[in-house]
Structures are given as structure tokens and as C-alpha cells.
Simulated assay, not measured.
Amino acid sequence: MSVKAICTHLGVTRSTYYCWKQASTDAGSCHVIERRIGELCREHKFRYGYRKITALLHQEIRVNHKVVQRIMQKYGWQCRVKVKKRKQTGQPYHIADNILNRSFEATAPLQRLVTDITYLPFGQKQLYLSSIQDLYNGEIIAYSIGDCQDTDFVFNTLSQLDTLPEGFTLHSDQGSVYTSYRYQQAVKGKGIIMSMSRKGTPADNAPIESFHSALKSETFYLDNLRSTTTAIVEQTVKDYITYYNYIRIQAKLNNQSPVQYRQLVG
């Protein structure tokens, strides 16, 4: 039967029929798009926002990004990766000159120290390690493990340094925790000469960067500890620092461990 005959038989106009047909087609297309968006979101474990999902869809069909955004919001398919919010700390209180200037040698213990923070993303929550290293023998002389990268965290590491010679140098990057008023006051109170890397130049603090890299490579990555408990992360770090200081030999220390070298030479 022709469309005209069908419309006459049903008592509807041809325009009404074509409007219904178009709406039916649109509804079908919308269902297909929704289903494909859901598949892509689940396939990528909800790591992507609507912009990336739209880009993937464009490899198959053309669809407006606003449509994708609306559908993802409708079904709760938005990106589930937590966006890290950086705390606004304002202008740094004090930025020191790069006194160390990549001169990573010292002729006596506690003459030149370096410090830094590294991530420990291996447990149930994000942890951080703050370390202070003696450039004389590479020994880790102070460290803290915590779940908050703030001034109290690095201050706790610094406070572990008790008996210190006058006028030794402590080198760090220009992180807000190191340039903060409280940290700088503590540094001055201990008679420390502060040195800081140039901005965006990790090589200016290479020894402590190397230690943190070795710690992760020789424990978490070597033992494939990518997802474990917080307690195991903390114990792994503590055990490795003990091993690093007392047992792990270094060629530049005449194949002695840092503590052995300090005791023999000193």
C-alpha cells in the first residue's frame, strides 16, 4: 500500500505520518548513541570526561559534545578520577639563591644536606615521603611519612636534626612548604644556610631525586607492590632506608654503605 492509502485508511494526514517517522528515527539514533557512550565510559573505567568521549565517538559518528555531556550527566557517567586541587598559598615568603649550584660533594658530615618530597601512591591512600640526605656519604639522616604535604610535614623532618654544626647548607626546591614563613623561621633558628634549586630544574637536586627513585625501583616496582595497604607502604619505606644506610654499598663510597663509610673515614 502507498503512504497516501495508509494515511487515508488510518485517518491521518501525510505530514503527521512523516513527523512520526522522523521522531521514531531520532529516538532510535539517540538510543544507539547513549548505548555507545555507556560502552566507552565503562571501557575506559570512567577515566574520561565528555570531551575525550566525544573525540572517541567522532571516530565512528558525528555528535555534538553538548549532547555527550548531557547524556553522561543523565546516567552519572562523568569522569570519576579525582582532580587534585592545589591550595593557594600566595606569594612565597622567601626564595633562596642556588648556593649549592650542583656541587654535590662535602668534605665532612652535616656540611651539605639536601631535602625533597616524593609521592608514595602504592597504598590505600596517597602518602608522601620527606627526606633529608647528607651529601658527605649519601646517608638519609631524617625522614617523615605522611598523608598531607604541608608545612608541618616538612617541619617534622627538619626537627629531627638535633646537634648541628654552625652554618651548614640545606638545599631544596622552591616548593611552597620550603619557602613558607614558618619553615624559613625554623631554618634561621637552627643557623642553617638555605639553598634552593632553580624553578623547574630537578637536576639541581639530583642526589635526593636519585635516592627516591632507587627506593621505588628497588622495592615497590621490583616486588610489584602497586596496590597494597598503608601499613605495608610505611614499613617498606622504613626497612629500605635502614637497608640503604647500613647495608647497601655504593661504588663512590669505596663499596661501603653510607654508615660504614662515615664510621671508617670519620
Score class of each variant (00 low, 15 high):
72 M>W: 12
118 T>F: 13
51 R>Q: 02
18 Y>M: 04
64 N>F: 05
121 P>N: 06
60 E>F: 02
114 V>I: 09
114 V>S: 02
89 T>E: 03
124 Q>A: 04
33 I>F: 14
79 C>M: 14
68 V>K: 08
98 N>Y: 05
35 R>M: 04
52 K>G: 02
38 G>A: 14
120 L>E: 04
64 N>A: 04
40 L>Q: 11
48 Y>A: 03
31 H>R: 10
47 R>M: 13
55 A>K: 10
125 K>T: 08
45 K>P: 03
59 Q>C: 13
55 A>E: 07
89 T>N: 14
76 G>I: 09
51 R>H: 01
35 R>I: 00
44 H>S: 08
82 K>F: 08
22 Q>F: 06
23 A>E: 12
83 V>Y: 13
68 V>R: 07
29 S>Q: 13
64 N>D: 14
13 T>R: 07
76 G>A: 07
61 I>D: 03
98 N>F: 01
67 V>L: 14
62 R>F: 11
56 L>W: 00
86 R>C: 09
80 R>Q: 11
73 Q>W: 01
79 C>S: 15
105 E>Q: 14
125 K>R: 13
19 C>Q: 13
66 K>H: 10
115 T>F: 00
71 I>Y: 07
91 Q>Y: 06
84 K>G: 05
49 G>T: 11
85 K>P: 07
46 F>T: 02
102 R>N: 06
84 K>C: 07
65 H>S: 13
122 F>Q: 10
34 E>N: 14
19 C>R: 14
69 Q>F: 03
110 L>Y: 05
85 K>H: 15
27 A>G: 01
74 K>R: 13
113 L>A: 00
32 V>F: 14
122 F>P: 03
64 N>T: 05
39 E>K: 07
60 E>I: 04
73 Q>A: 05
106 A>Y: 01
117 I>P: 01
17 Y>S: 05
33 I>G: 11
20 W>F: 09
71 I>M: 07
96 A>R: 10
53 I>T: 02
15 S>N: 12
37 I>C: 14
77 W>K: 00
77 W>D: 01
114 V>C: 05
103 S>T: 02
113 L>N: 03
17 Y>Q: 07
118 T>V: 10
113 L>D: 00
110 L>M: 06
108 A>N: 02
125 K>M: 02
70 R>M: 04
